[in-house]
């Protein structure tokens, strides 16, 4: 009986606390609700700087691009988010195509061509904020232990000596891997490209679900070679993992990170101010403070010395309009499934 009494007390205490939260309504004026798909520290720093500059109160949560896109879709009838900042451009373009985002109409004259290009193909609905270069990384210790040569080109990855040593994500689930697929198709042509992908596939030990997983596995020596974005690899290398980064000699592709205002945003003016702020040189210069080493989109911003040296790299002329369209994407993925394919 004593037990019952104690329980009763505990429960009633909780029951009193419960309704206290029940009728808390969201949304107050003069603030900004943001989903940030960049690195957490970068999100925090930008929010702090923006709040100090404008006095607008930013409520921010970090979510990956796929999760954000799914949420924006689900909420489209009554959006709770005003702005979506960061992450690869692809899902931003998808959101623009589906009418989930709106044009911000801010001045893009200070931006690099590739950033303006992203804005143009999306009718101004998403604007480029940074550039991330696709690359190959290998674990120097494991490579030496196995007595393998470091790869330098895409073609090298097809060599039989790397059997079971390469890891890359599955393009059906990962935007990173889709960029790799599209890059190889653009460098070598479609038929030749798929042959190379199939040959690389012979060496792949696992197609991971997430795009950044292969490089993490390479850092720990769970795989020898990984394919992914270089800024992910640089971060792991700076954290201390024995990773060396290679830009394939035939040329490589890249992604442009985007910022978009959600259609039906409740704090439109604040959202526009955010877009203006994050594409300014002043804001982008803070990146290296929190280990963000991608290439900023403002011409006047300083490029961090750790960033991939895009001037000396062989970047292909990545065709976002074609390879970002859902039609091409579905066709290429269907072909990938049929010819390269996950083992299941």
């Amino acid at each position: 009986m004593k037990t019952g009494l104690k329980l009763g007390l505990a429960f009633s205490g909780m029951l009193v606390a419960f309704p206290a939260m029940f009728f808390a309504a969201p949304a107050l004026s003069d603030e900004l609700n943001m989903v940030c798909s960049n690195e957490q520290d970068w999100c925090d720093l930008m929010v702090a700087n923006f709040e100090a500059k404008t006095g607008i109160n930013v409520a921010m949560v970090r979510k990956s691009t796929g999760e954000t896109l799914a949420q924006v879709r689900a909420e489209s009838s009554n959006p709770k988010i005003d702005i979506w900042w960061g992450g690869t451009g692809d899902p931003h373009l998808v959101a623009a195509q589906e009418g989930l985002t709106q044009a911000s109409g801010v001045d893009t004259s200070e931006l690099q061509d590739w950033a303006v290009n992203l804005s143009n193909i999306s009718d101004g609905k998403t604007i480029g904020i940074h550039l991330g270069v696709l690359g190959v990384a290998y674990n120097t210790e494991v490579l030496a232990e196995k007595g393998l040569n470091p790869p330098a080109c895409w073609m090298d990855l097809t060599k039989a000596e790397y059997k079971g040593e390469i890891q890359v994500a599955n393009p059906n689930s990962s935007g990173t891997a889709y960029t790799e697929l599209a890059t190889i198709v653009q460098v070598f042509g479609e038929d030749e490209g798929f042959k190379i992908l199939k040959d690389i596939g012979e060496n792949v030990n696992q197609y991971t679900k997430s795009g950044s997983a292969p490089s993490k596995a390479a850092g720990r020596g769970e795989t020898t070679i990984s394919i992914g974005f270089q800024h992910d690899m640089i971060k792991l290398a700076i954290a201390g993992f024995p990773l060396a980064i290679v830009t394939p000699c035939e040329g490589t592709g890249y992604e442009v990170g985007g910022v978009s205002i959600i259609a039906g945003a409740k704090n439109l003016d604040s959202a526009k101010k955010w877009v203006e702020y994050v594409i300014s040189a002043e804001a982008q210069n803070h990146g290296p403070e929190v280990n963000v080493f991608n290439v900023p989109s403002n011409k006047n911003a300083t490029i961090p010395k750790e960033a991939p040296p895009i001037a000396s790299l062989k970047l292909i002329d990545y065709d976002f309009a074609t390879y970002g369209s859902s039609e091409t994407r579905e066709r290429l993925l269907a072909r990938w499934d049929a010819e390269v394919g996950d083992p299941n």
Partner: peptide, 9 residues
């Protein structure tokens, strides 16, 4: 999960 949040939702 990846049918919802993946590259091809």
């Amino acid at each position: 999960y990846f049918s919802i949040v993946g590259a091809v939702a």
